[in-house]
Nucleic acid binder design. Structure first.
Length: 765
DNA sequence: ATTAGGG
DNA sequence: CCCTAAT
């Protein structure tokens, strides 16, 4: 309605920007007013979430540390939330609160247990949920700085958005500072400090970006960290930083009061520099807070062209927000000013705006306290939960109209086939959510977020995975041109069957890293119902047909296929092999020519092009690297049996590769023409493209063909060769044998003549 | 490197 | 298919 319209304007960066471009003083004032209005609206919208928290906090002022523990135990019990729209109840029992503590949501520090909630943020869109380590983040920071495309105009939308969020955030900090000044009672200093440390961190390395909303934290520390790893102090002047501050590394204060959230996704064409610039130029009004925010440390970085934009927006927003805050605070009629609400407000707004600024996330899901907030394609959704019964409540169907309302596909990221989405126990709720929204498809994440929160009360958590499909690893099929389509199909089918029939191994990838330890539990590996399962992927790897062994997975992966049996006990059964692998005293199973091997071999041998050759080499090398050392190290160290190991470096036996009928035909044809004994020519003539068919192979095949032709059809094995071909084989063989003998005779004759000739010559002479 | 032949 | 002797 009104909000909608205003927001539309507010979030329409284009309009805003256009107005900002050419403005006189009067127009500026006018514009400023409008911005204020818009921001107020935005604030209204977003404050419904955070304001609620604020009010909740009022109900239970968190003053002294002594009462904090009690507070925590009490939790948010039957809060009357005086939301602007409707009143609602939330219930969170002590148990629920405790469970939360167990889940790390609350850090029950004796010192700082005053804020029994912590925000968790999940974002989904066309985004890749990514957990960044500190180092990674730092490196991304550098990237962030390196980008310097001064294309502010082109993306005013984004810029303004970010600026706004920044302003909001800053305002929050300001307000918090004010709160400190006005509230000298109690130990608010710590809170204020936390508030000042509110930070939105943003980083990007080109395609993936990470936004970490770090509310509460030792700013100095953070700053130092940033400085430590930042090559240049450029980004320092921005409020948005890329940082991943593990909860565990925070100070107790931070833990108690801070909200921590991570947002990640990918932005392909996002002018990061613009963002940073926008931040750089946001004037910082706060006094000592500035240092904490590290804002405008580098005034020289300010760009005048951009400054007015952010400046106006910033100030006006700040004012607006300040006013709003005062209102809320007054309404609450509580003497003690709790910063948690503000914290959360800042947090929410920041996250919201930032995420929307990036417009790459179709869904944002995060929980604050007992409120689950979903922003789906611009629709703000709140879900209030309690332990016993949680019910979701749709926030007014506020369609926050921002330009990029659709689901944004970053292109670089797609829900690949191997990606796993979480569905899960929360489908019910999710369904409700999705139906209520109706538009967004990405209910998976929504359910994830909801699940993540709601599952706090349930003990038995299951990870629900949905694998849409698997991609079959690359297959190489080599087939003569003369082959029929039928045979081609058959070949493909054989290859596929061979792969699927045991030549594959499932690999688990989490956050881009392969999870090798199969003995880990999902939880240990970091796969849990309450985590971003988007980071989980599966792959099909062409490896041993052996079932993955729980232990020594890395080893079992490369079960070598040594053709020469070792002088060691043999374990023909896979179970035995399994056991051996478990004990890590594996003797390499002999003659384990698996279909996997077939696959690999096919990869190698089907070198129809230089590329394939490269593949061949690579595979061969990798395999050699894998198998040979393993044999040497493992077998020798663990099994000091005097291995003959005549050829420890022996190349693995080639995979059996039955000749197809087409190949046989080609072979017969060539031999008919060239005869036996010229296998090199046969190879060049008929199998030049088949790298895996050596002339020796052809010779052997001819041998077997002759043999096959001579035996009764009942004795033959394998793919039946047409009798016609076999007949030709026999004919050709006979012919060339005769020819050969003839030649030999001729030779002998010639030799005899040669021997005799000199004699005759001599005789003649 | 090829060929021939045994395994 | 491998191995190897002989060419």
């Amino acid at each position: 309605m009104v909000l909608e319209r205003r927001l539309d304007y507010d979030f329409n960066g284009h309009q805003v920007q256009v107005k900002r471009r050419a403005r006189s003083a009067r127009r500026r004032a006018k514009f400023q007013r409008r911005v204020e209005d818009n921001q107020m609206c935005a604030f209204d919208l977003l404050a419904t979430v955070a304001g609620k928290l604020f009010l909740q906090e009022k109900e239970h002022p968190l003053t002294s540390g002594d009462k904090s523990s009690e507070k925590i135990q009490q939790g948010f019990v039957k809060e009357e939330c005086r939301d602007a729209s409707e009143a609602f109840k939330t219930e969170l029992s002590n148990e629920g609160c405790h469970r939360r503590c167990e889940h790390g949501f609350v850090k029950d520090d004796s010192k700082n247990a005053d804020k029994p909630f912590k925000a968790e943020l999940y974002v989904e869109g066309s985004s890749d949920i990514k957990c960044l380590s500190n180092s990674e983040v730092q490196s991304e920071n550098c990237h962030f700085k390196e980008h310097s495309h001064p294309k502010i105009d082109g993306n005013s939308h984004v810029a303004s958005m970010v600026a706004n969020s920044s302003c909001l955030e800053r305002l929050g900090a300001e307000r918090l500072a004010d709160g400190k000044n006005h509230n000298e009672v109690g130990n608010l200093s710590s809170k204020v400090e936390l508030g000042l440390s509110s930070k939105v961190e943003l980083g990007s390395s080109g395609s993936p970006y990470t936004i970490g909303c770090n509310l509460g934290g030792d700013v100095t520390k953070v700053k130092d960290e940033l400085h430590k790893f930042a090559k240049a102090p450029v980004v320092t002047s921005t409020e948005m930083r890329c940082l991943d501050d593990p909860v565990g590394e925070r100070s107790p204060v931070q833990l108690s009061s801070g909200g921590n959230a991570k947002l990640s996704g990918c932005v392909d064409n996002m002018p990061y520099s613009t963002l940073s610039e926008g931040y750089d130029n946001v004037p910082v009004v706060s006094r000592d807070d500035d240092e904490n925010f590290s804002g405008c440390d580098n005034p020289s970085l300010e760009t005048k062209s951009f400054r007015p934009i952010s400046h106006i927006g910033d100030q006006s927003i700040r004012k607006t927000l300040a006013a709003k805050y005062c209102k809320v605070a007054q309404q609450s009629k509580h003497d003690t000013l709790s910063n948690s609400g503000e914290f959360m407000l800042i947090y929410v707004i920041t996250c919201f705006l930032v995420s929307h600024a990036f417009c790459s996330c179709s869904l944002i899901c995060f929980s604050i306290g007992n409120i689950l907030v979903e922003v789906v394609n611009g629709n703000l959704n709140e879900t209030y939960t309690s332990r016993k019964n949680f019910y979701k409540r749709q926030r007014s169907e506020m369609n926050i109209p921002f330009k990029k309302r659709k689901i944004f596909n970053c292109g670089s990221f797609s829900n690949s086939n191997e990606l796993v989405r979480s569905g899960g126990t929360y489908d019910k709720k999710n369904g409700a959510s999705s139906t209520s929204h109706g538009t967004h498809k990405d209910t998976g994440m929504s359910s994830l977020g909801a699940h993540q929160y709601s599952s706090l009360g349930s003990k038995d958590s299951h990870v629900n995975l949905r694998i849409k499909s698997f991609r079959v690893p690359e297959l190489f099929i080599e087939i003569p041109e003369t082959a029929t389509i039928e045979s081609l199909k058959r070949s493909v089918m054989e290859a596929v069957t061979a792969v699927l029939g045991g030549g594959l191994r499932v690999g688990v990838i989490l956050h881009g890293k392969k999870v090798r330890d199969d003995s880990k539990t999902l939880l240990q590996a970091g796969i849990s119902h309450d985590k971003q399962l988007d980071a989980l992927g599966f792959t099909l790897e062409p490896i041993s047909s052996q079932s993955p062994t729980p232990v020594c997975a890395a080893d079992s992966r490369h079960v070598p296929t040594v053709d020469k049996p070792q002088p060691l006990p043999r374990y023909p059964s896979s179970a035995a092999i399994h056991q051996r692998n478990q004990s890590c005293s594996d003797v390499f199973p002999e003659h384990r020519v698996t279909s996997l091997g077939n696959l690999v071999e096919s990869d190698q041998d089907s070198a129809l092009s230089p590329v394939n050759t490269a593949v061949y080499k690579r595979l061969a090398d990798s395999r050699a690297l894998v198998t040979v050392p393993e044999m040497g190290v493992q077998a020798l160290s663990l099994l000091p049996v005097p291995q003959k190991s005549k050829r420890p470096e022996t190349v693995q036996r080639r995979i059996r590769r039955p000749f197809s009928v087409a190949e046989v035909e080609a072979l017969v044809q060539a031999v008919e023409k060239l005869g036996t004994g010229r296998w090199r020519d046969v190879k060049l003539r008929a199998f030049d493209n088949a790298k895996h068919r050596t002339y020796v192979d052809l010779k052997d095949k001819w041998k077997t063909l002759v043999h096959t032709a001579r035996i009764s059809p009942q004795q033959r094995r394998g793919e039946p060769v047409p009798q016609e071909l076999l007949d030709r084989v026999l004919t050709a063989h006979a012919f060339w044998s005769q020819h050969q003998t003839k030649q030999q005779l001729n030779k002998q004759h010639q030799q005899q003549q040669h021997q005799q000739q000199p004699q005759t010559c001599l005789l003649l002479q």
